[in-house]
């Protein structure tokens, strides 16, 4: 077990009181495994990712029953211990390649800085390592690219540099927060393929945050679906797509555009928006948007086990009712 997170809670202090951005989220990632976290914008995916690296903004407070990386307790780590871990054994790729790199340093300098922060290496060795990584992420004439500044590169190239940076020290676990969302569609597929190939060749565990369900179905080993700060369903990928149990998961799967869909019919969507978390909700968070909501859903609802490794947060789980009603 590489990463084990149990009952992660993140509260954000706002002028209107504390906001429970993430509530009792648990997940595990093994060596070489891919975990996908899916959900709409604002459901707490990104802040969960940041909390893993201890990069939460000051207003956010993290608590967890357990949080271990390769058996090390991440909650009791000092700042220095955590810093030694970050970028070395545990690394992250961010969403926005246009601003993720320092505009005043060359690509080579930024890559070398990461390597030299964790390894006793000469400038020359760090430079060679940087060239090697740039080649790995598919950048041609890598040696010349080292002397270029971020503003001289396209978005796709910058994101390749960001990926190279995250892989400089061969991390065991990489957290990728919507790594291709900001890029052109044509480049997205290419970069994702690259990322997945690199994951295999480096043998890394990966947490991929995305809302591209098509992608999830192809690469994920395990999926957790988040809604308004909670895990609403967690399952092995194959099972999630064949037996989705939570009404939100079903609605999400129903919103994926299918090319054979009739042209003039409006695209399916989930009515309403993700609720604001300022007022703590008692019952099911999906209540307002759920076609199956009833009075019983106003109670606090626990994750219920459906099958081995398959859980959902819905009162109807296991009763066989959901499938019939949603399909009908």
């Amino acid at each position: 077990m590489l990463l084990n997170v149990e009952n992660l809670n993140i509260d954000i202090a706002t002028p209107n009181g504390s906001l429970a951005a993430v509530q009792d989220v648990s997940f595990r990632v093994s060596k070489g495994e891919t975990l996908c976290i899916v959900g709409e914008s604002g459901c707490g995916k990104s802040i969960t990712a940041l909390s893993l690296l201890g990069l939460l903004p000051k207003v956010a407070k993290r608590t967890a029953r357990q949080m271990t990386f390769d058996g090390l307790d991440m909650q009791s780590m000092s700042k220095a211990e955590l810093r030694a871990l970050r970028g070395d054994r545990l690394s992250m790729i961010f969403q926005e390649p246009m601003t993720a790199l320092n505009p005043l340093h060359t690509v080579g300098r930024q890559l070398s800085d990461v390597y030299r922060a964790h390894r006793k290496a000469s400038r020359r060795e760090a430079k060679e390592r940087a060239i090697y990584l740039l080649k790995q992420v598919g950048i041609s004439n890598a040696a010349q690219r080292l002397n270029q500044y971020p503003h001289e590169l396209s978005g796709g190239l910058r994101q390749r540099v960001v990926i190279a940076m995250a892989l400089m020290c061969e991390p065991e676990l990489i957290v990728a927060d919507e790594p291709t969302t900001a890029l052109d569609v044509t480049i997205q597929a290419e970069l994702l393929r690259l990322l997945i190939d690199l994951q295999k060749s480096f043998g890394m565990g990966m947490i991929l945050i995305t809302h591209d369900l098509g992608l999830v179905s192809r690469i994920a080993d395990r999926v957790i679906v988040m809604y308004a700060g909670q895990v609403v369903e967690a399952a092995p990928a194959a099972e999630l797509f064949t037996k989705p149990s939570h009404p939100y998961t079903r609605a999400l799967l129903g919103s994926v555009p299918d090319p054979s869909y009739p042209r003039m019919k409006p695209l399916p969507s989930i009515p309403g928006t993700v609720p604001s978390l300022v007022s703590r909700m008692e019952g099911c968070h999906f209540f307002d948007r759920c076609p199956l909501a009833c009075d019983a859903c106003r109670q606090p609802i626990q994750l219920a086990t459906i099958d081995k490794d398959h859980e959902a947060r819905c009162i109807r789980v296991g009763k066989g009712e959901i499938r019939r009603k949603v399909v009908a």
Binding site: R86, E96, N102, D113, M165
Partner: peptide, 15 residues
Amino acid sequence: DYIRTARAMGLSEAR
């Protein structure tokens, strides 16, 4: 964002 990246890569606080 680039400071967040730098921190995520474990660069020292002084750097």
